[in-house]
Design a protein around this nucleic acid. Structure first.
Lengths: 214, 214
DNA sequence: TACCAAACGAGACCGAGTGTCACTATCGGC
DNA sequence: GCCGATAGTGACACTCGGTCTCGTTTGGTA
């Protein structure tokens, strides 16, 4: 199997065992995205997927917690990077701006192939209700974790409303920006995506003031 | 709407067929809540539940789309009432305030037994990951629908950020208020719940301004 | 080389959810 | 009150995702 440019799975510094595990994981995700895109999420059974990759079902479930998970790897990577950024850097100034900055940093840290995989994932999600449910839930978990982290870092009460609101606003901005970007087939690359995200964040303060014309 | 002791399933104005269907539905929800609470969501199989109620599995799936759904009926009722309020009344003034008012109205419209059932549901959700995922997804759907309705009513673009942000803020306020209320075992009844909800909404504007101490 | 631990494959098993079909009960028209 | 159309029901077979067990292989280590 040819990988072109190097990737985590080729990292010679890792023990062979781990490299193999990562390679299996990546092969599963790639194959899954290809099969699901070609025939639909529901039409491709797990048996067929693991057969294609030539691993056992056991191996699949050691790599992924559910069928849905392997289809939305790109989504998972994004939010993992976001939470990493959040944990890794100090906070100062306006918190919503900080969240925006961390999300931007996360996107910039993703590997070069991510763009393509993310768009394929999002298109897939639109066709399979089970996937939509899965990402909704996953995103909620990310929001909770981000909010908990903020509350901790800022010394706030565990169920203070404010960090929760901010965490949810940030993911909402992402949804809107990403949807438009995917609709445009990723035109403009990551720069365009991050521009859309910044636009979204800029228009947040106006939201609270929104009024219905009499 | 006041049902007193009678309930929708006893409403003599409905055709007998519909009354039966509603009664089955209610019995399933009640029995499910009882069994799940007593033995755990995972430990009670659908076969056992339908056996207890003396209906077939087919009948169950005609009444509910999934095992999770029957466990969170109270949650579903709340958000259905919320969307009803939203669709049924005109908008004027600040939109976030309006959403708060609609949610309050929804709570007031729920039947008297709802309080107890909702608390049982929420306690259950804390113990079963599958239920958590289900309500997360369901709530996201409600937010989407509310946002779409607002956008339509206000003549905004379909992916305008503002109604989405407001819709999500309102459900976030609900989460925080309801969690505290359930933790207190519903002390103070609905009045206390609605007070907590109002408090939450009042503290929203301060969120955007939140800053990290330098 | 020998040993240990970790990952793997095979396959039995469970339970949710779907589809089919014959049966039964309700409803509306007469 | 009778009767045909129709909607709801039960029984059952089936698919498929996910768990568990256990014997085997493979990479790390002394």
């Amino acid at each position: 199997m040819l990988y072109g440019m190097t990737s985590p799975a080729d990292d010679r510094s890792l023990p062979l065992r781990d490299r193999k595990r990562l390679r299996t994981r990546r092969t599963l995700a790639e194959t899954a995205l290809r099969l699901f895109t070609a025939h639909g999420f529901d039409a491709v059974t797990l048996d067929r997927l693991v057969d294609e990759v030539e691993v056992s079902k056991s191996t699949f479930f050691r790599a992924f917690p559910a069928k849905e998970a392997v289809a939305v790897e790109a989504e998972t990577e994004l939010w993992r990077a976001y939470l990493d950024q959040l944990r890794g850097r100090d906070l100062s100034g306006n918190v919503l701006d900080a969240l925006h900055t961390r999300l931007t940093g996360a996107v910039e840290a993703l590997d070069p192939g991510w763009d393509e995989r993310y768009r394929a994932t999002r298109r897939l999600v639109l066709t399979a209700p089970a996937l939509l449910a899965y990402v909704d839930h996953h995103r909620t978990g990310v929001e909770d974790e981000a909010a908990a982290h903020l509350a901790d870092r800022l010394g706030l009460d565990a169920d203070d409303l404010r960090p929760r609101v901010l965490a949810r606003i940030t993911t909402t901005c992402w949804s809107v920006a990403a949807r438009a970007w995917v609709r445009d087939d990723g035109r403009g690359g990551r720069a365009a995506l991050l521009n859309a995200l910044a636009d979204a964040h800029r228009s947040v303060p106006a939201s609270l003031a929104l009024t219905a014309g009499r």
